[in-house]
Amino acid sequence: MARITLKVDGSTVSDDVEPRMLLVQYLREKLGKTGTVIGCDTSNCGACTVHLDGTSVKSCNVLAVQADGREVTTIEGLADTVDDELHPVQEAFRECRGLQCGFCTPGMIMQSVDLLKDNPDPSEEEIRLGLEGNLCRCTGYHNIVKAVQQAAGQSGAAGRHRAGATTAGAPAEEVAE
């Protein structure tokens, strides 16, 4: 066993863990933070994305011991619990219906937050490339991309989701900058 101490969603936690324990297991099984989900278990799908010291990582591909002394933010630490307000990216995913079954959503949102931190005004292509490590098997990604555009404050993005929700191949004017 190894002793680890780290900050998760603003709280300091300390535990004895087996070195082989994955960060995602630690978050879910030890801390009960089941908002972070295990999708593929092969580090392809990105559903388990969290922030480690402020940058996005796949928590199924990090050992809990590697997070010792570091700071982790999960989907559960994103909203403003004091004022009971969702994070703007969460709000945009809800507004734009950037989900269907919702399983990929925690990872999509965490990766979108990371993407917007580095690039506050991304093009559609930059959004799609930035989310290439996150797989969604329901939406075809259109409303996810729109949610990121809306969170970035790009004009017109908010009104597009209704048409986009039923349009598989988004017309050119919908995806234009």
């Binding site: 990105g46 994305t49 480690l52 996005s56 990582v57 796949k58 591909n61 993407l115 490590g133 996150n134």
Partner: peptide
């Protein structure tokens, strides 16, 4: 190379 999360790590 790979994807953003993998490039971070």
């Amino acid at each position: 190379l790979a994807d953003a999360q993998v490039r971070h790590r």
